[in-house]
Write a protein that binds this DNA or RNA. Structure first.
Lengths: 202, 202
DNA sequence: GATAAAAGTGAGTAATTAATTACTATCTTT
DNA sequence: AAAGATAGTAATTAATTACTCACTTTTATC
């Protein structure tokens, strides 16, 4: 068990830190995650964290980078090998939902960062992630319109907002139910309504 | 100017406090609103707040009650006098968006409260609000199905989740843009996609 | 196996926070 | 105008927070 060793090389320690924060965010209000709580979960003293990160925001930024990398590569994989744009959208949707089910703290952290009034590094990272996400969606919408699968009159921006909101709605619902798995079973039903809204009328 | 008087009767002072918190939540991260900041904005000392509220959570609870009352009565008014269920849904949607545009801090506070791990009074209040909101939606969905305006196969729960998520998506978008008015102009476009998703195929 | 670099410890610090309290100012009622 | 009630002040408190640093332990290199 290399993870529970006391002394870890800096790179590994940073990796473990990020994973710990993601884990904690799934259990409690992200804005209440203290450096002490992170250290405790890692079996480390609080001061040790600051050997590897200059400050707390740097930790959060690393988390957002971790999220961006993983989420984007995951949806990219989901989209590939799907010939039809609508099938790709559905696959992307389910991949996103799957990702969130595994890491329920992530949408909370993202939303929390976006809310901050100061222009922090993690906030910018969150904005970038969402902008790249929307870009990917837009590509699929345009493809779908071209091949006639999607309504030609569809407003891509609105469709992207709705796509993301759909997931956000599921998150909110699971937050109320206090049950993450609730999301998995409801996702297909919600997506089917969404898909009906953007498809071309045949 | 009765509001800026120094001494206010308790009831009025509580009212002003709630409005001040709603105002502040529109300008900064709700979780960073301190009792000192509230008092300062009111032209009051921090300690004075605790003459009218036993603790900070009581303030937040009062805010959530204020929100529940206003929002629910507003959507009720919007729904009434609309004969068609779909027209009522649209009116409800726009009323909600209008409410949020006037008080952009509210969806942030709501989401923030829902995230808290402890079962606090304001959190319960937020849950109740959402549950009543969904109930109202469900009534409209059932009406719509009966009169044939909505798809008979429509999953009401999923449709409610999507309705709320649609608004949440708009909020998120306006959070990124840093511009609340952006929401008003995009709302109809987003709703039109939603509506297409739930309508019966004619 | 000595040694230097890296990683972790533990006891601090200063700043911020919600809440308390002894006192004062202002209203209301008679 | 006196007196009781209500509302606000200003200073203080205990707890919590991110962050620092002198020192110790572990790991890697020769």
């Amino acid at each position: 068990m290399s993870v529970s060793r006391k002394h870890l090389p800096a790179e590994e320690r940073r990796e473990v830190t990020v994973e710990t924060v993601v884990e904690l965010a799934g259990e409690q209000n992200p804005s209440e995650i203290t450096t002490a709580a992170i250290a405790k979960r890692m079996g480390l003293t609080q001061g040790a964290l600051f050997r590897h990160f200059p400050n707390k925001d740097a930790i959060l930024q690393a988390v957002m980078e971790w999220v961006a990398e993983r989420l984007l590569s995951r949806i990219e994989k989901a989209v590939q090998a799907k010939s039809s744009p609508v099938a790709a959208l559905e696959s992307m949707f389910m991949a996103h939902v799957g990702f969130i089910t595994e890491h329920p703290g992530i949408p909370r952290m993202l939303f929390g960062e976006l809310q901050r009034s100061e222009e922090t590094a993690p906030k910018r990272m969150a904005q970038t992630l969402l902008s790249r996400y929307r870009e990917r969606l837009n590509r699929l919408f345009e493809q779908g319109k071209k091949c006639g699968e999607l309504d030609r009159e569809l407003d891509s921006e609105a469709a992207a907002t709705l796509f993301i909101g759909t997931i956000q709605g599921l998150v909110m619902q699971s937050l109320i139910a206090g049950d993450v798995n609730h999301m998995r079973s409801n996702a297909p039903k919600v997506f089917s309504i969404y898909q009906r809204g953007i498809r071309s009328a045949l």
